[in-house]
Design a protein around this nucleic acid. Structure first.
Lengths: 233, 233
DNA sequence: CAGTGGTCTAGACCACGAG
DNA sequence: TCGTGGTCTAGACCACTGC
């Protein structure tokens, strides 16, 4: 029975974590109720609740009403990726940022996107190709479709001073989105833009965002060779 | 001045979100204090705090003592990746899981890892190569180093019935780790194992975990072609 | 049905940090 | 220095869900 110094919820979380790490509470085992823990620690139940809620958020314990709280059997690794706008990512590396708009036109939505990106039949979308630079070296190649029904103002913007990446974040907040991360072999044109050899493995992100049921934009970012997306867990 | 129905913190969060989306509160603008909002919504300050804390966690507002709460200028996209153990990932796809241990030996730690993975000088680590299958098709190729000083029991385990991936999660809980996601061209041996052509772009994850200052394991997972890691934002 | 977590309240004190 | 968010308390009611 180890006493802990503080009644802070972080202190209590630390003690609960210790018991899980030290196997005082086995995986799968039910741990005491909030009320019991509150009594043991000499604090309010709210405080224990806060600590347990945090552990549940990180996947270490599973909480269910009536069934109580159990130590997770196979705690999944949860990692939070922070994906900043590209200018901030580059500047965060201490490099100079600039971007170059390679292509901009109106066109019908490609057939492959019709499933996920529901625009009106026959509507045209704004298509943009942009190359982002860090210290004059290519950093990311971007291909983007913008739904003009969701963001009509985009029709009249050149996107030469401010990139679409940044403009949309500030102009068209989304309610939700899909994100997928994958690897792709550099096609000939992409290889040339990113100053690398054809077929080089490149890290890529695809993202669709919506406001409500209205799709806003579909974007595919292909990073220069060697890029790693990092986070701590 | 729209009234909201409930005093639930999620209801209040929804209303705050609406004001941000609808630009009633401009990006960068300071929003009312918790106390004012609590009065406006007719609820306790705690409840407003919970809603605002949630918005801050998702990056939409920036909170600072004394300075108040501001709408974020360039809300970064935060995505939570859940990385399950491979068996559960495969079974979650409705496929049969099995794995095959290709190699297992003791060796000194490779020089390139000495920076991040601090084991005693000259200590041997356990090296494992594993191929994970989904319905008899290769799914992930895994290369792993295990610090025997952190997990001595690993020395005597064959890792043939239970993969190291799964065993370590259950046996050696970590306190923190580094995760990086990247793309890699398939080397000849990896290409053969994953049943694909040399130089195919493959999605890969590298991960180091520690308990305290003691490194536990370094693992590199290379997924079969076409793999996408998805999440919602 | 009844036990457990989820949440709300009203009030209080405290720590940080901008001005 | 002092306004603001961060947290803790003691108590209460509620919602879900396993038994």
């Amino acid at each position: 029975m180890s006493l802990i110094e503080t009644n802070s919820w972080t202190g209590i979380r630390a003690e609960l974590l210790r018991r899980i790490h030290d196997r005082e509470w086995q995986p799968g085992e039910q741990i005491p109720h909030e009320a019991d823990l509150a009594e043991e620690f000499g604090c309010a139940r709210t405080t224990v609740n806060r600590a347990l809620r945090d552990l549940a958020d990180s996947g270490l314990v599973i909480r269910k009403r009536k069934a109580g709280t159990r130590v997770a059997l196979n705690p999944p690794q949860r990692a939070t990726l922070t994906i900043p706008i590209i200018r901030e990512e580059v500047e965060g590396l201490g490099l100079d940022y600039r971007h170059s708009l390679l292509e901009r036109d109106l066109r019908p939505l490609p057939a492959v996107l019709h499933g996920a990106f529901k625009v009106s039949l026959g509507a045209e979308v704004l298509f943009l190709k942009t190359l982002h630079f860090a210290d004059d070296r290519p950093f990311v190649y971007e291909e983007r479709y913008i739904n003009l029904e969701a963001v009509p103002d985009a029709r009249n913007r050149a996107f030469e001073t401010m990139s679409a990446n940044e403009w949309l974040v500030q102009t068209a907040p989304y309610t939700h989105g899909d994100l997928s991360l994958f690897a792709v072999n550099a096609a000939e044109d992409v290889a040339e833009l990113l100053d690398t050899a054809k077929d080089t493995a490149l890290f890529a992100i695809e993202r669709i965002t919506w406001t409500g049921v209205m799709p806003i934009t579909h974007v595919r970012l292909v990073y220069a060779p060697g890029y790693r997306m990092r986070t701590v867990i």
